[in-house]
Design a binder for these strands. Structure first.
Lengths: 194, 194
DNA sequence: GATACTTTACTAACTGGTTAGTTATATGTT
DNA sequence: AACATATAACTAACCAGTTAGTAAAGTATC
């Protein structure tokens, strides 16, 4: 029953559930401790404070995303599909990101910005290679794709809360998203390309 | 200095700023009272509790949106443009909606659902009239349009925090959004319409 | 038109419960 | 013993909501 690493993990898991559900301001440290099955003080031994705990968890899961979701500028509908699948199977992380963008004053950590820039650069290359049409700037495309792929998550005010039926047909939804991304990125490659 | 209506309005304004900035859990009633320049108790005379105050404000501003933003199924790029303009000039309301979808347990009020259904029905009619192509279900289209039109607001985790430059060219952004919506809604009307 | 009474708008101080974070102490491990 | 892991008890600050009371404005009565 004495296992530092395991306790730390249980805290992280419990905190993930708590923060995802209630955000930073709404999260209760006592509740995290109870869920983790440990004493509250353990949380303050492993982490500085509530905010740090939140950031640690967000960072950890974001890293996981970057590993699980390779960006494929030559197959953007496929990328959107994978983002959609990920968002549907990881609603907690999507909520965590939503809380973060509302509650955390600081801009996104430098790492995220860098990764974003890499994608934009790759997208520009794909455009120059004729794989993606040049109708839109690469930065616009990336945000548009992410917006479409995550529009049906609970954190979107215009998402499933207004259109509850849509999430009951995830397959149709997935196909529609892929098709929409295709229209935006490959819609008129031939016409405009040269 | 004794003016019930004016005081109530000041409370609503102060609460809008507070809730928009900190959400429900993060909002402080004392701070609202201070901003409104009134005693905290006045808030509890005019409103039941913090949650009710939040709901009242959200409702009030949503009503305003429905009046200011007529839905035009025959001109969806134009509608997206207007939503984009509205979102850019009313970031507080967008944040309020984001907080609501994260913090409020209850589903969206019946009114919002009804308005949504009306739009979906109108969209279906526009499809049958050949004004909008039938590639996508009307419910999908509506959510996709809203997602695109509001993707560059602060509350979107994939929005401006990752792509800060984009919001410096709002005109280009607006045009791109309109163009993207056009591609999705009118992209291949001729081909599929027959 | 002055006086007593009622209602409305407002305030200061308080209450009871909550909460992030700490300290002191105990227990298992090597 | 020495160290790492864990717990219980505690504290100081905070915070939503309440209470009890004051002052202004209106209304009735003479």
């Amino acid at each position: 029953m004495r296992n530092a690493e395991a306790t730390r993990e249980r805290i992280l898991d419990a905190a993930m559930a708590e923060f995802s559900a209630y955000g930073i301001a709404g999260a209760r440290v006592d509740r995290i401790a109870k869920t983790a099955g440990c004493n509250k003080n353990m949380i303050y031994i492993y982490f500085d404070n509530k905010e740090t705990l939140f950031s640690t968890i967000l960072q950890k899961h974001l890293t996981r995303v970057y590993e699980e979701l390779p960006f494929t500028p030559d197959d953007l509908p496929g990328y959107a599909t994978r983002v959609f699948n990920f968002a549907m199977t990881n609603p907690d992380l999507i909520r965590l990101m939503a809380w973060s963008s509302l509650e955390q004053k600081t801009e996104s950590p430098a790492e995220r910005g860098t990764i974003h820039d890499l994608k934009v650069a790759a997208l520009l290359q794909a455009q120059n290679a004729g794989q993606v049409n040049k109708t839109f700037a690469p930065g616009f495309l990336l945000t548009a794709i992410m917006a479409l792929a995550t529009a049906w998550t609970a954190s979107n005010p215009f998402g499933p809360s207004l259109d509850p039926d849509s999430t009951k047909n995830p397959d149709e939804l997935r196909n529609s998203i892929a098709e929409a991304v295709k229209l935006i990125t490959q819609g008129d490659t031939e016409k405009h390309e040269q």
